[in-house]
Amino acid sequence: MTGVDVLLLALGAVAVGSAVLVVSTRHLVRAGLYLVVCLGAVAGMYLVLAAELVAWVQVLIYVGAVVVLLLFAVMLTRAPIGASDDLDRPGWPAALIGGGVGLGLAALLVDAYRWTTVSLPEAGNAERIGEQVFSSWVLPFEVLSVLLLSALVGAVVLSRPDIGATADRGRSR
């Protein structure tokens, strides 16, 4: 067990523990805040695994943007502030399938890697990742920009009731 392993174990324990709280807490807002802890711990694991740029992008986009959007959605749907009892469905099938998926995948990966050691590669900083993105992965990069544009247009169309109403009227005639 080297220092890297201890760091990975500690960050992994924090990530899994806060993920358990995300899927089991009775407070909507606290679920969002536990999600911040979980995503931050995963970003720390990226840093340990020599993925600098991905770690900072994770902090910027996930912790910065996605969680803020989720908290906005919690507020806009007028969620109760305190604990609410009607957040969950009966849990047996969910526990069965979720536990089966998680433990099955874990058993598969443990069987594949046992307790082997790997030396860490050179860190993926912005220069190296940028070289790769703009030499080998240019086409997916451009396709992703089109996807982002279509998602933007889709979100605007979905959230404007006047556009949807005119489309419905045109279809019914």
Binding site: A19, L70, A95, T116
Partner: peptide, 30 residues
Amino acid sequence: MRPVIPYVTAALLFGLGTYGVLRRRNAVLV
């Protein structure tokens, strides 16, 4: 670095996510 530690963490996170999708009623929590 032992790769089994982050791999098992990821597998457990995925299982917890599956559990949350099936368990939660609130769409934001899903």
